[in-house]
């Protein structure tokens, strides 16, 4: 099975966010970009499928600028990706996710793909638009919020659970398809040192981003909320008193009591 996994380099979770001097985006100066969140899970899922389905290949694809995009692809290789494609161009915090999907779709036209795995949403823009837009451009079905993805070799199709607001839906889907993964792994693998060293010299196919003129949104502002001042701790002598005080506050002051 040819598994393509789309990875977006995002600022690491602990990043202290600052506003760039243009006032419209995140200041990325000194920010460490990593493979994180759902994309880390998507790669782990791709590798698990490869292990389960003999003859599979995992192809990591990422669209973005140097050096972060190449670094994320090298970490994917160190973890076990067989191939890597770097689509070099402007993408990242503040960029339009539908445009990114159209750029990547253009690059996938001549890349074999039975399954395209994405994160449900990127850790920075949290748009959740890329997988669906990619699938519509490629003429494939897409499924978001997927967990428990399994390959049914006998029937030649995937089964999975789609986590919806109302609960879950079980699906049976033949290839090719696009999946936006919402899986939390207990222990995603870590790269072994020899593989990290090898990944530094591994080949990465590099392409220029296609021009895809079309409708898009542009960032015009980026603001940080005033810092939370910390909780008002309610003092009490007995649990009953604590409960009474809290309910009164929720009702009269915060006005959120049902």
């Amino acid at each position: 099975m040819e598994i393509v996994v789309c990875l977006k380099p995002v600022p690491e979770a602990e990043t202290r966010l600052r506003v760039a001097s243009n006032g419209t985006t995140l200041d990325v100066e000194g920010v460490k970009f990593v493979l994180a969140g759902y994309d880390e899970s998507a790669l782990e899922q791709a590798l698990l499928l490869k292990e389960a389905v003999p003859g599979s290949k995992v192809h990591a694809v990422s669209f973005g600028p140097a050096p972060r995009t190449e670094e994320v692809l090298r970490s994917a290789i160190a973890l076990g990706a067989d191939l890597a494609t770097w689509i070099e161009g402007p993408s990242g915090p503040g960029a339009d996710p539908v445009t990114a999907a159209r750029v990547v779709a253009a690059a996938l036209a001549d890349v074999p793909h039975d399954l395209v795995l994405c994160g449900k949403q990127a850790g920075d823009d949290e748009a959740g638009l890329f997988p669906g837009a990619l699938a519509e451009t490629l003429g494939l079905p897409d499924f978001d919020s997927v967990v428990d993805l399994r390959w049914d070799a006998g029937a030649g199709r995937f089964t999975f659970l789609r986590a919806t607001d109302a609960g879950g839906e079980r699906w049976q889907v033949p290839v090719p398809c696009v999946i936006g993964l919402q899986q939390a792994w207990n222990d995603p693998r870590t790269a072994k040192l020899p593989n990290i060293l090898k990944s530094r010299k591994a080949p990465i196919a590099k392409r220029a981003a296609a021009e895809v003129p079309g409708p898009a949104s542009v960032p015009v502002g980026f603001a940080l909320p005033p810092p939370r001042t910390g909780a008002r701790l309610i003092d009490y002598k007995t649990p009953d008193e604590a409960a009474q005080k809290l309910v009164r506050i929720l009702r009269e002051e915060a006005k959120v009591f049902p």
Partner: peptide, 12 residues
């Protein structure tokens, strides 16, 4: 964005 740690404005 960023899990509610920032707000972005966008224009179309």
């Amino acid at each position: 964005v960023f899990g509610g740690r920032a707000t972005e404005r966008r224009r179309v």
